[in-house]
Amino acid sequence: MSQLAQPTLGRAPVALAPTQPLTLRINGENRTLNVAPWTTLLDALREYLDLTGTKKGCDHGQCGACTVLVNGKRINSCLSLAVMQESEDITTIEGIGTAEELHPLQQAFIDHDAFQCGYCTPGQICSAVALLKEGRGKTEAEVRDLMSGNLCRCGAYTNILSAVMEVVNAQKA
């Protein structure tokens, strides 16, 4: 190691890009916020719009806690810039269901005890909502693989699988 040069750490400051108004369509509502391009969709939701149901578990696309739906498709909101999502249809956990009217997956997660600490849960549910729409996860083996983009450190996978399969099977019927 001693023969290796020290890497450069400090960098010269650059001019800061100005903030600009940005309108995002979230859960069916237009929301306008003032952000610079460096604001990720995840931070826009959590820090600018107080939609904290979407979680930050790694901020690098390595855990799935930040999963939201864009035009019905699941993505990692931490790896997308808010400016890249203008005019798209964004759905977060807050738009999946409410305490009064839970989505069948939300109810199934409660019934099957498909979470413990709850931190990965909104991402798991958004991911499973998209899975149902994709129509590809029909068997347990398929669902295991297609839900592997959402880490759960509490290890609730057995129960998450049961919850998702209940809704998958209900959809088949």
Partner: peptide, 9 residues
């Protein structure tokens, strides 16, 4: 490769 979320992006 990756995950459904990443493959969608």
């Amino acid at each position: 490769g990756a995950t459904p979320q990443l493959r969608n992006m």
